[in-house]
Design a protein around this nucleic acid. Structure first.
Lengths: 196, 196
DNA sequence: GAGTTGACATACGGGACGTATGTGAACATT
DNA sequence: AATGTTCACATACGTCCCGTATGTCAACTC
């Protein structure tokens, strides 16, 4: 058992490249990240990258999909403890705001991602975060607790509000103080969707 | 009166460069816009651009400031006809959503702008759109019609929701059909800030 | 055991950005 | 009014980086 299967080897190089790309994109931004550098960091060359991901944007897409998936998982976990469907939606939104305080997430998912890959709803990763919010809203709609709004639009509005607000919190001089206020404001805002 | 003053000449070249940059950035995106090409389009060379704007990002900042100012002006105009302070806020939000359907605005202000220049609240243009929303919210707060939320955070949430929703509308297969639903959803959402 | 496939490395060309240097017209100075 | 200076802009150069085309070596097939 000295080696591994062909497919396993390839998965390993893909993982190494994604990891190196994630670090480089987070630290330098997509535009200033050199593929020569990040592939060398992974102990490889650009050849491996082009073979596995097609081009620089392809690597970013893979990185975004990974980070996006992690975000959705954490949001789901945050919502899992809620007693109530509505509380779950609020918890998810709050979780997104807090998650987006991470510079890595801001740079990769909120700034470079949309600019390079286009609108998030068109991403190959199918935007797991958005799907999570949509799911929560549909559950509420079935319970009859929502105003008669378009679910898809509502999900986009909530997600956009949360993630954008996080950029504001992170850019502020005192994030720790502003975060709770922002989360409260988000909860107040979200209640606009509640049936009266 | 054959010529113009020195300062007037410089303003003219700045205007020509901004105009050419605006077109190039809108059509090709920031990354794929060639400074050789866009300066030639303006009948100039890269020398003029570096002299006036420092670098490529400097030109983008100037373009963003111009577009952002135009957006705020239109939003203010849309709100001017409202009978009521709250109706004005709703009208502004709706105006942002509709404005953001313009591909030029999407590309420059919503996608490349944040990615290249960083968080909008830190822009030199001071984000006229955001300022407009903040103004409307403060007026409402003085009238006592707002829940006790942080104004700054609320402005960011509303703006983020509106602009992000516009990306969704524009990316949809049938924007004309989805736009009114999205605007309605936005109005419902915004009511979350209204005092009960 | 020879041929083929495929994952990855190396070599090459083109393009774009930023800087350093040049230039000619307007303004100041005497 | 003539000369020196400034400055807005053009030109020339070096450098970096992406994408492709080509090469290579191990693994699998027959």
């Amino acid at each position: 058992m000295s080696g591994k299967s062909r497919a396993a080897m390839m998965e390993e190089t893909r993982a190494k490249l994604i990891s190196a790309g994630r670090k480089a994109f987070a630290e330098k931004g997509f535009a200033d990240a050199s593929m020569d550098d990040l592939t060398a960091d992974a102990g490889l060359t650009r050849g491996a990258l082009y073979h596995n991901f097609g081009d620089k944007k392809g690597l970013l897409a893979a990185v975004v999909a990974q980070v996006d998936g992690e975000m959705a998982a954490k949001a789901r976990q945050a919502a899992s403890g809620a007693e109530d469907t509505w509380a779950a939606l609020e918890a998810e939104g709050a979780a997104y705001i807090e998650l987006a305080l991470d510079p890595e997430i801001q740079r990769i998912v909120l700034l470079d991602g949309p600019a390079v890959l286009g609108d998030p709803s068109a991403w190959p990763s199918q935007n797991a975060c958005l799907a999570e919010t949509r799911r929560a809203l549909m559950a509420l709609a079935e319970e009859g607790r929502l105003k008669p709004v378009d679910i898809e639009a509502a999900a986009r509005l909530l997600n956009g509000a949360a993630l954008n607000a996080a950029l504001y919190v992170a850019a502020s001089t005192d994030p720790k103080k502003i975060l709770p206020r922002t989360v409260e404001a988000f909860k107040a805002l979200a209640r606009g969707f509640l049936a009266t």
